[in-house]
């Protein structure tokens, strides 16, 4: 299995196509919603951004890039780079966001991956997704999607209720980033399988240039976390948890899968205790995943 890409310097990802030259086209899993379509800069290839939900949003999004019309040459690689452009005091500051997946790439599509948007589109900040298809390091096509990432808002007003958990990891500039994804799409009453995506954010190595270009932070998938979880209804009239939950456990690069039982609809926290070896990064009193349904 190919390594899950981690955004490195310039956060560029390369995915090789499947070297499967059989005459039968491999079936691409197509996500339900088309978010946007773009022509490449040479106006040859059309690429569609697809998602499992109608809109992109803060937190974990299941997405895929699928070509339409002319076929790209086989054997290439995909590069994906999400970028947040922030206007601050007349200057543009940029940062990226973590993602993983895109394993089943070929010359038609990137395969399905997950982008964890750390923040929504805001007045002073917009998101782009830069996508390239390269053949032997030679760019065949480049696309830029200007995308809207919706904020997730809750009726419950508690600053620790999160779609994206961010906590400092001990000393230094490193931050633990976590997002969740319900396997069935949305949380529901009953038994819910859910994924926790976990990354370590490291600051860009080069500070102070301020040219707004080139130096983005990096995200490293975390594979050795121990996550203890407690689904809980924080509404003061409720104040209870649910029985028979399973803590998220490691399944693949940066990804943990657990079971959360929701005994009714409403607002649910998934409180977590997250540690790595001796280090505890998060306790159940701190930030928690939260959802309302």
């Amino acid at each position: 299995m190919k390594n899950i890409f981690l955004a490195l310097f310039l956060s560029i990802v390369l995915f090789a196509c499947n070297e499967d030259n059989s005459s039968i086209e491999p079936e691409q899993p197509i996500l339900e919603y088309a978010i946007a379509s773009e022509k490449d800069e040479a106006n040859t290839y059309t690429l569609t951004l697809r998602s499992s939900k109608a809109n992109l949003h803060e937190g974990v999004n299941n997405v895929a890039f699928v070509t339409e019309g002319d076929t790209l040459p086989e054997g290439g690689e995909w590069k994906i780079l999400p970028k947040m452009h922030m206007q601050m005091e007349g200057m543009t500051h940029m940062h990226s966001t973590p993602f993983l997946g895109f394993d089943e790439a070929d010359n038609h599509a990137s395969g399905i991956g997950q982008i964890l948007f750390l923040m929504p589109t805001v007045e002073m900040g917009s998101w782009t997704l830069e996508v390239s298809y390269l053949l032997e390091d030679e760019s065949i096509a480049d696309w830029t999607f200007e995308i809207q990432v919706d904020a997730i808002e809750f009726l419950a007003q508690d600053p620790t209720f999160k779609t994206v958990v961010r906590v400092p990891m001990g000393d230094g500039d490193e931050t633990l980033i976590m997002g969740y994804n319900f396997t069935a799409g949305e949380p529901a009453m009953g038994r819910n399988e859910y994924e926790v995506l976990a990354f370590k954010r490291m600051q860009a190595m080069d500070h102070g240039h301020g040219d707004g270009h080139g130096h983005l932070e990096t995200y490293m998938p975390l594979n050795d976390l121990t996550i203890k979880s407690t689904p809980f209804m924080p509404d003061p009239s409720m104040n209870h948890g649910s029985p028979n939950n399973t803590d998220p456990s490691f399944v693949s690069e940066g990804k943990y899968v657990g079971i959360a039982n929701f005994t009714m609809t409403g607002g649910w926290q998934i409180k977590m205790n997250v540690s790595e070896g001796e280090n505890t990064y998060l306790t159940e009193e701190g930030q928690s995943f939260y959802t309302e349904f």
């Binding site: 003061p236 009239s237 409720m238 609809t265 607002g267």
Partner: peptide, 15 residues
């Protein structure tokens, strides 16, 4: 069934 109206202005609950 049961519909519960959150007293704190939170989302209503159902079971």
């Amino acid at each position: 069934d049961m519909t519960m109206y959150s007293p704190s202005g939170g989302v209503n609950m159902y079971m």
